[in-house]
Simulated assay, not measured.
Amino acid sequence: MTACPAAPLQRSHGSARLSFRRAGPWTRLDRLHQAGSAKAFVHPAQTGPDVVFLNTSGGMTGGDRLCYGLALGAGCRVTATTQTAERAYRSAEGIARVEVTHSLAAGAHLDWLPQETILFDRSALHRETTVALSKDASCLLLEAVVLGRAAMGETLTALQLTDHRKVTRDGVPVLFEPLHLTTAALTAGAGVLQGARAFASLAMLGQGAQSALGPVRDALAEPGVHAGASAFDGRLMVRLMAADGWPLRRQILRLLTVLRDAPPPRVWHI
């Protein structure tokens, strides 16, 4: 008797890419491509289109791949988010990979505000986010991570997360954030997470971004959230840490109220 080989595990792959152009005073959808598990929806909003990305596979595990991308023409203004929190589940083998690539022509502005990424026990995720700015283009970028859901009693004993964010202006790097968390980080103490199980990074890049530093620091008042903000030379950076994703989310919403002249995307409503 010869044992039957194990069937290969099914993996999800998805890609959603959109481009926008300026038509008089309006930002209009120019092209839309979506394939596999990735979908994108465009909704009219107060300050320009809202793009909502959706992963129909319901989460990611080892071997899955997801790609999102936006190309904004000159003068376009777009807000983009995800339909819900992305989930990285336990990986039996391999690594889940996410690639986010945005490009902004002169005078364009993007608010990239994905909802939090929830990491489950023994998950393995590699994410690359690249934003290419031209001339006086500007952006607001958010990345939030939750290490298990406290309300569900989830505790992480092992994980692997590599998360890189890179922003360039006319090809010159203006922001580079490499993050690498392994199992050791869960018990590393004050030098790493300080017991936090939720953290976020918020960056605003553009002319005069540093002028928002005072109002941002005044808004860092959510109980249970440790936060700090700094700004210089057209860059504003905010770091947030909390014991759970719920107070972190409330603090993020406070900051979005300060940094945007529009309400948060509707899928963020709580």
Rank of each mutant, 00 (worst) to 15 (best):
G245H: 01
R217N: 07
F232K: 02
L175T: 04
L253I: 04
G195V: 02
H269C: 03
E154R: 01
G224M: 01
V100R: 03
M152S: 15
S37T: 13
V167P: 06
D261T: 05
T61F: 02
F53A: 08
L240S: 14
P265A: 07
A88H: 06
D170I: 13
G214K: 15
E93T: 11
P44F: 03
L66Q: 10
S134F: 06
P49N: 01
I118S: 02
Q115G: 10
S15L: 11
L253S: 05
W112R: 05
S138C: 11
A23V: 11
E86K: 07
I270Q: 15
L125H: 03
E177L: 12
P44H: 06
A185Q: 05
L70M: 11
A262K: 04
H180N: 03
F53D: 00
M237G: 00
A16W: 01
L140Q: 12
T61D: 06
A124R: 15
V225P: 01
S91D: 02
S37P: 11
P263N: 14
G107D: 04
A45P: 02
T79D: 03
V42K: 09
G73F: 07
L248Q: 04
P5E: 14
P264L: 00
L193E: 14
A243T: 00
T183K: 12
R90K: 11
F176C: 15
L205K: 01
H226Y: 05
S138R: 01
V52S: 00
S123C: 10
A144I: 11
T182A: 09
L72E: 07
P49H: 09
L161T: 05
I270G: 07
F53R: 00
I95K: 03
S103M: 04
L29H: 11
F41E: 06
D121N: 15
P114R: 05
R165S: 03
Q160E: 06
L72N: 02
H33S: 14
R21H: 12
D136T: 12
R87F: 12
L248H: 14
P263D: 01
H269R: 13
R77E: 05
R169Y: 01
L72V: 08
R149F: 09
A88W: 02
P114F: 04
V174R: 09
V100P: 05
I118E: 00
D170T: 10
A150C: 06
R250F: 08
A16Q: 13
T27V: 03
V98P: 02
A221I: 12
R11Q: 13
G69M: 07
A35S: 08
W268G: 01
Q207A: 13
Q160G: 08
T130V: 09
V131D: 03
G63W: 11
G59C: 09
V42T: 14
L70I: 09
R21Y: 14
C67H: 15
C4V: 09
R90F: 05
V192Y: 09
W246P: 04
L29T: 08
Q115A: 07
A151K: 15
P265Y: 03
E154D: 13
A188T: 05
E128C: 12
V98Y: 04
V172I: 15
V225Y: 10
E86V: 00
L29M: 13
S12T: 12
L213W: 06
C4R: 11
